[in-house]
C-alpha cells in the first residue's frame, strides 16, 4: 500500500509540477493570470480522446499534433486577445487585473465550446490499461507511462529555462522586464513566446491526464486552481519551486487518500498551501520582497 501511495503520488505530483510549469511561465514572464488555463488542459484531453476513439491514434502519438497546435493556438490567443491589453496597460499590476477579467471570459468560451461538442458527461478511454507488478504492488501501465513522460517533459522544460540562452532571457523578463530590454531582449516577443510555451505545456498535461483520469468539460478549473497553488507555493516564476511543490502536493494528496480518507484530499491540499504561505510568504523557493 505504501509503494502504491508513493507511485500514484509521484504520478499526480509529476502532472501537477508539469502543468504548473506552464502557468508559471504565463504568469511569471507574460504577467497574464490565465484563468482559462485549466480549460486548455481539458480541451487537449478531449482532443486526445477524439483522436484515440475515432482515429485510433495513440495519445503518445497525438502529442506530436496536439503540442504544436497548443503552442500555435496560445500564440494566437496572446496576439489577438491579450496584446491589446498589454499595449494599453500602464503597469504590470494593471495588466494582471485586466488579464484576469479577460481570461475569465475566455474560460467560459472554451468551456461552452467543449460542452457543445462533447456534452457534460464524464469521459474516459482505456489506453495501455494493463496491470504491471512493480516493487511488490500492482499499478496500471498507463500511470507509469504518464509518470515517465511528465518527468521527461518537466526535465526538458527545466533544462530549456535554466541552461539555454532563450530560457535565461525568459527568466530575466520575469525578474525585471525593463532591465531585460536593456540587454537586448525583446520583451513583447518574450511575453508572447512564454505564453505560447505555457499553452504547449498545458496541452501536454491534458493529453497525459486523459490517459488515466476521467474528465468532463467542467473540471478545467480544478487544474487551474491546483496549478495556481503549486505556482504560489513554489514561488512565482520559480521553475525549481514549481517542480518541488507539485511533487509534494501529489504525494500529500495520495497519502491522505490512501491512509486517511479520500474526501479529505482537497482540505489537506489547502492546509499544506496555507502552512507554506504562513512560514514562507514568498513560496518555498521564493524570495520575500
Amino acid at each position: 500500500m505504501l509503494t502504491n501511495a508513493i507511485l500514484s503520488g509521484l504520478t499526480m505530483g509529476g502532472m501537477y509540477a508539469l502543468v504548473a510549469m506552464g502557468l508559471t511561465l504565463q504568469y511569471g514572464v507574460s504577467r497574464i493570470m490565465n484563468l482559462a488555463y485549466g480549460e486548455f488542459v481539458i480541451a487537449a484531453s478531449f482532443v486526445a480522446f477524439l483522436l484515440f476513439t475515432s482515429g485510433g491514434l495513440s495519445p503518445l502519438v497525438s502529442l506530436l499534433i496536439i503540442v504544436p497546435a497548443g503552442f500555435a493556438v496560445s500564440y494566437l490567443v496572446y496576439g489577438i486577445l491579450l496584446t491589446p491589453l498589454v499595449r494599453r496597460a500602464r503597469s504590470r499590476e494593471a495588466l494582471e487585473a485586466d488579464s484576469i477579467l479577460s481570461t475569465f471570459g475566455l474560460l467560459f468560451i472554451v468551456q461552452g465550446l467543449m460542452l457543445v461538442f462533447f456534452g457534460g458527461n464524464y469521459t474516459s478511454y482505456s489506453y495501455f490499461n494493463t496491470p504491471v507488478q512493480i516493487l511488490g504492488t500492482t499499478i496500471a501501465a498507463n500511470r507509469l507511462v504518464v509518470l515517465g513522460f511528465a518527468v521527461l517533459f518537466g526535465a526538458a522544460c527545466y533544462f530549456f529555462l535554466m541552461r539555454t540562452r532563450t530560457g535565461v532571457a525568459l527568466r530575466a523578463v520575469a525578474v525585471d522586464p525593463i532591465a531585460a530590454g536593456l540587454v537586448a531582449v525583446d520583451v513583447r516577443w518574450a511575453a508572447a513566446l512564454a505564453f505560447a510555451l505555457g499553452g504547449a505545456i498545458a496541452v501536454t498535461g491534458g493529453v497525459l491526464v486523459s490517459m488515466f483520469l476521467t474528465f468532463n468539460a467542467n473540471i478545467g478549473v480544478v487544474f487551474t486552481m491546483k496549478a495556481l497553488i503549486v505556482v504560489i507555493m513554489g514561488g512565482v516564476g520559480n521553475v525549481a519551486g514549481a517542480l518541488a511543490a507539485g511533487i509534494i502536493l501529489g504525494l500529500v494528496e495520495s497519502f491522505v487518500a490512501t491512509f486517511v480518507d479520500p474526501g479529505l484530499t482537497i482540505a489537506v491540499t489547502y492546509a499544506v498551501f496555507l502552512a507554506v504561505l504562513l512560514v514562507r510568504p514568498g513560496g518555498l523557493f521564493g524570495t520575500a520582497k
Binding site: D176, A179, G181, L182, V183
Partner: peptide
C-alpha cells in the same frame, strides 16, 4: 530599447538594473 542595444548603445541604469535572483555568470551571459 532592445533595438537600441542592438544598434550599439548600452545603458547601465541608475540602480544598476541587475537581475538579482540570477547568478553573476547568467547576468553576463544575458
Amino acid at each position: 530599447p532592445h533595438e537600441i542595444v542592438e544598434a550599439g548603445l548600452a545603458l547601465v541604469p541608475e540602480g544598476r538594473g541587475l537581475f538579482g535572483d540570477l547568478s553573476v555568470a547568467e547576468n553576463l551571459q544575458l
